[in-house]
Nucleic acid binder design. Structure first.
Lengths: 149, 149
DNA sequence: TCGACTTGGTTGTATATGCAACTTTAGGCG
DNA sequence: CGCCTAAAGTTGCATATACAACCAAGTCGA
């Protein structure tokens, strides 16, 4: 029964990144499947939700909340703006490009709630209640909810 | 103190996908940072490890193990083959394109072990022992280790 | 044996993601 | 004021990821 001590075996057996990434693919596909009829991806839904919560969102703030690279967010916003879900608002600080939901974006988000519920239910079944709780505990210090959002 | 029942608030507070994806970004960056000096990304390291374990790996099998789309793997292999880390071997079944590590690929993987150890240590600190255990428990039924690998 | 179906991969297209380098705007400081 | 640095975004580039459509090879039943 003794497990090999070969480092490569150890990695195969215990690598955290492999597991987290695997889980990420499974969960992301689950939500993407649920949202597909709406033409929405979970990555975009995240941003809609943050925008809804913040009212006017500054990219730098969103990057911090979601641990997203600024360039990634920049392009996501670009696409979502093109779809009419977000709009950029002016700011005194000339560097900033704050954005917010459009009416269309808000409506889309509201329409998406049932699909989200459905995916969330499946995900909960997959992780188990203890798993969900642990996930929240682990991710609480990371960006989200560190600061009130 | 009472929390809002607005569905959007509920999503912001409890969405599993948001958390898993956030965690994925944090962990992936952690390992990518550690592996960067070697010119290796954690996604590629995953594949090297699987190839090392399997000897000769069939893409379909790897996709099942890692819950990866076939087209994704196809292109990952392509890139890694171009770098000389993998080689495709012939098969009786003309459809199959099994691959395995090259000597160079094996050497790279061995060289990467210390960097992996370092990232793994940081990730463990981040998740906590209970978190790591829970992660393994949750992901055990998903692809990996369902079948002996 | 032939045709329908299945299995295994690849290709076209779109999105997501991050690093490096760059531009623009603010903020200090002499 | 004029310069230097810091902060906020954007752009070029590479990789990762998945869906849809496709092609090729194997399987199986009539």
């Amino acid at each position: 029964m003794s497990k090999s001590n070969d480092p490569i075996d150890r990695i195969a057996r215990s690598c955290i990144a492999v597991r987290v990434r695997l889980l990420n693919r499974v969960i992301t596909n689950l939500y993407d499947d649920a949202l597909r009829p709406l033409g929405l991806k979970v990555s975009q839904a995240n941003i809609l939700v943050v925008a809804a919560k913040l009212g006017v969102a500054r990219p730098a703030q969103v990057c911090e909340l979601l641990n997203l690279d600024a360039s990634t967010l920049s392009r996501n916003i670009e696409r979502m703006q093109a779809k009419g879900w977000l709009e950029v608002v002016p700011d005194e600080d000339g560097r900033s490009q704050p954005f917010r939901l459009t009416a269309q974006g808000r409506k889309l988000l509201e329409t998406a709630v049932p699909a989200w519920e459905q995916a969330q239910e499946k995900a909960t079944a997959l992780l188990g209640d203890a798993g969900v709780e642990m996930l929240h505990k682990i991710t609480r210090p990371l960006g989200l909810s560190t600061k009130p959002y």
